[in-house]
Simulated assay, not measured.
Amino acid sequence: MVKRIIKKIFNVRDKVSVEKPKVLSTELGFQKLSTAANNATLKPQTPLNVVTPERSVDVSALFYGMLFPSQSGADTGIANNLEKSVISEVESALACPGDIAEKVLKLPSQLAALDQKLRDDSVDIETLLEVFKTKPVLSVEVLKLCNSPAFKRSDKEVTNLQQAFVQLGREQIRRLVTTSLMAEVVEIKPIYYRRFGLQIWRHSQQVSYLSAEFGKCDPDTAFMLGLLHDVGKIAIFKMLLDAFHQAEPGEQPNSSLFKQVMTTKSLSLSALLAKHWQLPAIFETSLSQLASSHSKPSDELALAVWRANLVSECSMLFQANQLDEDCLSRLLMDANLTREQFDIYHEKLKMF
């Protein structure tokens, strides 16, 4: 019975009905949520990037509404028992992120060591190829990415890593290795829940690609930052899967409060995980700025991820016919992107 209910919740409908928004506010985060998980009612909030005095709808709320479609069409501020349980676990995770880092989202041990070798120009290609020979599964995954529509550079298929290094260069290989290893971290195994996990992973890959495009000051760090920005959401989603075992029949994660937790709290959790994984301090700093800012961040790397996140959400919503032209135009103004530029990126993002 529980499996049938869960399957129904995450069943992809042909068309999800969404009320046509009047104007969209594009802040990545929301006002700070109450730390009390039993606070079931969401208080009205003052929009921060409103173009007109009309009612605003947050683009992130639309995005997670697409991933968690409400069967009844209702979207209230009332948290049900399922959501309260998850929110309580999120608060515990924020207080003790080590448990999540070790048990839920364990960073592959070889990531840091291999990334350091790829970053070091004094390490020659032959040495790197010898390292890859000891990691056949990783080598296969990197080759698959090399030949995927999103990363393919020519019509000729890449059949070995030496070709890949010649055609793509070590910096691009470094990005592919990072993507392959991070895919292991965010993997969602239960078949009923793969849709959400795959969509979030697709979004993360889009954001990493766009972050490198926008973060000209340090595209490689921007790429990694974009890839990491949603690990907190994956952690929260895995908590949600466990909570479903104790859920009442019919309970769904569709309240406004839960969507806010999936946005703001998850970014804070991403920052704490980056710190626990002992990644360079810039990752925690940038992710923390994204989590605490109610407007465009000032830091160049954080701003690149902010823009990338917005453009990716717009692209996925637009592809799903859940974002009209007027709203898209206003969002693109905030992203500092022309419609022509968006169309080029949109076609590219559809390949992820």
Rank of each mutant, 00 (worst) to 15 (best):
V2I: 13
K3E: 14
V12Y: 04
R13A: 07
R13G: 07
V18M: 13
E19Y: 02
S34R: 11
A36S: 14
N39F: 06
L48Y: 00
V50P: 00
R55M: 11
S56E: 14
V59L: 14
V59A: 02
M66W: 15
T76I: 05
E91L: 06
D99P: 00
E102F: 06
L107W: 07
L111M: 11
D115Q: 09
L118A: 10
V131E: 15
V137Y: 04
S148R: 03
R153F: 05
S154I: 03
L161M: 13
Q172I: 10
S180C: 10
L181K: 01
E184V: 01
I191E: 09
L210I: 09
L210Q: 07
A212E: 03
F214A: 05
C217V: 12
L225G: 03
L227A: 05
G232I: 06
K233H: 09
E251H: 01
K259H: 12
Q260P: 01
S266F: 02
L267S: 01
S268G: 08
I282P: 00
S286C: 14
S293W: 01
S293A: 12
H294R: 08
N309G: 05
L310Q: 08
C314R: 03
M316A: 11
N321S: 15
E325C: 04
D334M: 03
H346E: 10
